[in-house]
Amino acid sequence: MKKALIVLEKEWLELRLQPMLLLATLFLPPLITLIAILGFFAVGKFTASTIGSAAPLPPEFTSLSPLEIGQAIVGRQFSTLFLLLPIFIPSVLASYAIVGEKRERTLEPVLATPIRTWELLLGKMLAALLPALAITIASATLFIGGILAFAVSNRVRDMIVTPGWILAVIVDTPLLALIGVALIVVLSSRVNDPRTAQQISAVLVVPILGLLFGQLAGVVVLGPAVALGIGAVLTVIAAGALWFATRLFQREVILTRWR
């Protein structure tokens, strides 16, 4: 475990030396959150009275005023962002941590040390996961603060900050992040460019977008049961992805099969 922390420390040291990468991954989410809050605030002030009839709305929106509908739509759209962030952020960090190391041929000297491969993998995964989760939780907290402060009514607040959404952020986002990192490890055995790994891993956002559109169309309601159900499915996927990633992230496999 001690060596995993040594790896983690080195990864963060390298990250600090890449200000643009750091900026893009760690400062962008709070910035987007601020934009979301601003948008939410603005919609609450200026929504046209015709918005309610512009598109078919989910059933729970029918009793809301146009101002409330505007805020609820914007708030729900942006709330899904916090399910996307844990995929996006660690995929960037992990792809540089693993594919970058592979490309610079630094893995062999590391593997020649008495480190165990699971310690190396754990160090690299934590280096990508911890900042991603911290920034996601921090941004989500900021978002909740914005919703509480600027919602035109309690009904709007209750429609966005639901127990289901909070559960999804707490339970599902770490699992999504874990799947994202595991996918990067798997991709690392085949690609030599961090950007390629990121692009391929972006396929993970598709189910999240499905959830977003499902919510907007009123087909899916992200209640606690759905959030926990998604969590259960993600747990199985994460376990499978980790198992597969661990098999690929073995000294012998890295040295003889990673190209």
């Binding site: 040291l13 610079e104 062999e108 040390t113």
Partner: peptide
């Protein structure tokens, strides 16, 4: 072991590179 490729972390200093490996050893 001196591997075929030096395999050093370009962004880290000489001291940081060695310190990392010293800790791994």
């Amino acid at each position: 072991i001196l591997t075929e490729q030096p395999g050093l972390y370009d962004r880290l200093s000489a001291r940081q590179n060695l310190r990392y490996f010293a800790r791994l050893y």
